[in-house]
Design a protein around this nucleic acid. Structure first.
Lengths: 377, 377
DNA sequence: CTCAACCTTGCGATCGATGGCAAGGTGAAT
DNA sequence: ATTCACCTTGCCATCGATCGCAAGGTTGAG
């Protein structure tokens, strides 16, 4: 059905060897021949069969990306960033959903990774703990995301403990004392809760188990349920640190339903700087990791390994920063201090503009003005 | 490095032919041999090289899924559903991000689809209009999502015009008259706006161009900007129909910033029933398509085509329903009528429970009670 | 004329699994 | 002893592209 290299050769009146030479930019091909071959390729709509090529070359041009799910915005955004980064380097990306299931994650590393269908694997483990991961040895290059694991895998991620501590420190700086935490029991959650603990300790606040609402998952549901659980138990915090934005948005909803005002009654901080958080009501204070940087770094690392780099496993820490929004600073605070708290990159473009948000009135209507056009006023 | 079928044969003391026989459940293999071969496979950790197998068989076990992005929750949820459905049938999924770029979408259909790297393609076109798509002929099985196109592609999707009309009818039933629409200018948006127009017409309300806020994209940003644009122009609607939930959530934010109450001042309806909408403040009334059903149907259709089904292109319509939440019914309305408006499937499980939401108080605290435990009260 | 640089080609092995074919080998039934 | 059903095998072509090798061709410079 589809044309092969031989069809092209016949059509162009050359040998198949010459066609390969053209395809691979071999040194000694005359311009004339090159042109003729190219024309035949176009006319026959020939596309080299990657499967055959890959069999020969031992590479498939595919990376596998293993994430727990795509429903949690963080993983959706992360995946998008990684697909972009991979595409830039000519790799396709196969998405594998692990559902944070340890068995599934192991199967992926142990079996599926041996299939040679992928040239590399970017893995965001949630189910497997450091100990299990330590055991696994994997045939193909792997870059781990999320929390550092103690196997000999390359790793890219933020300093979760420090970042969480930053977030909680911010709450303390805002005068909060009874600070709850939601989300301890998943991969990175453990480390983020540790950061929470340290920040409290540093401020001389005692760590109170009853303020900890563990969730094994990290969906909106879970944040909402955990918050409700806290309130139902009569625990009344004046702030909540959520191990990610999705949990935080769920928690916002529960607080709203309970008639509690954020941040007046309870301040909320998330983690990840997911797009939704910017548009939440109130907008969500959060820790923003450099996701694009993370993606680029992960792919870069992987490609380097595929090219034979055998240096010892690296632990790459990407920067993070605190983004203060209404859920801790409040509407009034934001209005009073129109500092450039936020960065709002437009998803499509890559320009980065500074802009305030959360301003409720006095919006100079310029024709065709963008929503954030007030940033200049 | 990695073991091949021949290594296994040698190790088990049989011929490679026998190993193939075992691998493919050939009829005449003695149990004894079968066991021995299996043991060798395990010991050598042999996994058949899919690339070689595929070269021979002409199939790769991979489906391509082309969506514009993963940032818009709908596509994230859709992708997750499709990956699940494909995994169930033993297919891997390669995600291709088109960015809603017509050129990219064409390249995908015309070139990348010829690569034989995929056995099939599930395509969610946004950039290409029906006319362009009509032209394209594609070598491999394709199932189209979103709006029906008039090429000879299989198609799975909701009846966008009808569904949009349902949504707007609901607004009209709630007594709204000045109903704006956000989002016309993208693939499905055109059809949804058409549904909007019909519902107005049916109710004898004149279609007013100044109430139409077109957006070419469908991110939070765009919804927010479009809403601001309407308000800045002095257009004061009493309801807004947004062509998807993401736009709607963006619009909610702008309304909030302008100090307008939803739904008292402005009612808002979205489309897609994205997870975020359930947790938005206020929770979002929306049109819920059966996403899991859609995913299953799409994969099913694709597999059937791959197996040689040559029946004429099918147009499969999946059911939708209106889900009424606070953004049109309001807190009070919900509290007054604890009807089972909503279905809230837990992402992980597939059980479907009826539950009210948006109840602000009187939450009977049962130990370990789920957030939606009030549904029985 | 000779040599070298440049271009093109046919041949054939290679990547790893598949599977047709014919040829054997069992053991049991006829 | 013969037939047959059952099991196992070696051999080889196949999928399509890659690439080394040797050989043959054309130039033009020396």
């Amino acid at each position: 059905m589809a044309a092969t290299i031989h069809d092209v050769a016949r059509h162009a009146g050359v040998s198949s060897r010459t066609v390969t030479n053209v395809l691979n930019d071999y040194k000694w091909v005359s311009d004339e021949t090159r042109r003729r071959v190219r024309r035949s390729i176009d006319e026959l709509e020939f596309v080299p069969n990657p499967v055959a090529r890959n069999l020969r070359l031992g590479r498939t041009g595919l990376l596998a990306l293993a994430v727990p799910n795509l429903m949690a915005s963080y993983f959706a955004e992360l995946s998008e960033a990684l697909v972009d980064a991979a595409t830039l380097r000519g790799f396709g990306v196969v998405i594998e959903l692990t559902k944070a299931d340890p068995a599934e994650e192991l199967r992926l590393l142990a079996t599926r990774a041996r299939s040679r269908l992928f040239d590399g694997l970017i893995f965001s483990p949630l189910g497997l703990g450091p100990r299990e991961l330590h055991e696994v040895k994997c045939m193909l290059p792997v870059v781990m995301l999320g929390e550092r694991v103690h196997g000999d895998f390359d790793h890219v991620g933020v300093d979760n403990v420090q970042a969480a501590a930053d977030a909680v420190e911010h709450l303390i700086a805002m005068g909060r004392r009874r600070i709850a935490v939601i989300g301890r029991d998943n991969g990175t959650g453990i480390y983020r809760t540790e950061g929470y603990r340290r920040a409290l300790e540093h401020a001389g606040i005692v760590y109170d188990e009853s303020l900890v609402a563990p969730t094994s998952n990290y969906f909106l549901d879970d944040g909402s349920a955990a918050m409700a659980h806290l309130l139902d138990q009569g625990v009344m915090p004046d702030a909540v640190f959520c191990c990610n934005d999705t949990l935080a948005i769920g928690a916002l909803r529960t607080l709203f339903e309970h008639g509690l005002h954020v941040p007046n009654d309870v301040a909320v901080v998330g983690f990840d700087d997911v797009d939704d958080g910017r548009y939440a009501i109130p907008s969500l204070t959060t820790i923003a990791p450099d996701k694009a940087g993370l993606a680029a770094m992960a792919v870069d690392r992987l490609v380097r390994r595929m090219d034979g780099d055998t240096s010892p496993a690296a632990d790459l820490v990407i920067p993070h920063r605190l983004v203060v929004r209404e859920s801790t600073a409040g509407l009034a605070a934001e209005r009073a201090t129109p500092r450039a708290h936020q960065r709002r990159p437009r998803p499509a473009a890559s320009t980065t503009r500074q802009a305030t948000s959360g301003v409720a009135s006095k919006r100079p209507s310029r024709s065709g003005a963008r929503r954030d056009g007030t940033g200049t006023s």
